[in-house]
C-alpha cells in the first residue's frame, strides 16, 4: 500500500465529515493504484467525473497515482 494526502474541494468537501475547507486527509491505496482506484476507494461515483490534480497537473483516470503525492480533487466546472 502507499500513502497519499487527498484534499477534497468544493462540492466534494461536503462528502467527508469534519473536514474544514481545504483540509486534507490521509488515504492508502495499493502501490501502482490509478486515479480511478483512488476515486473508488473514496467512494466517489464515476458519473461525478471528479478531477484529480497532482502538482498542478490534471491526471487522467488511468494515470498512476505518484506515491506520497498530495492530490486535490473536485467536480469539473466551466467558466465563462
Amino acid at each position: 500500500m502507499m500513502k497519499l494526502r487527498v484534499i477534497p474541494h468544493g462540492t466534494l468537501g461536503g462528502r467527508f465529515l469534519n473536514l474544514e475547507p481545504g483540509q486534507g486527509m490521509k488515504v492508502e491505496i495499493p502501490v501502482g493504484g490509478t486515479v480511478k482506484n483512488l476515486l473508488a476507494i473514496l467512494g466517489i461515483p464515476e458519473k461525478v467525473k471528479a478531477v484529480v490534480v497532482v502538482e498542478g497537473r490534471v491526471l487522467k483516470e488511468n494515470d498512476t497515482m505518484p506515491p506520497g503525492s498530495s492530490a486535490s480533487i473536485f467536480e469539473p466546472i466551466h467558466g465563462g
Binding site: H9, G10, T11, G22, V51, G56, F74, E75, I77
Partner: peptide, 19 residues
C-alpha cells in the same frame, strides 16, 4: 448543484490547484 452551492467562486480551488 455546483453553481447553486458555490457559484462561480467554485473555480478558486481548481485554478489555484492548477497553478
Amino acid at each position: 448543484h455546483v453553481m447553486p452551492e458555490l457559484g462561480t467562486a467554485g473555480l478558486v480551488a481548481p485554478v489555484n490547484s492548477m497553478g
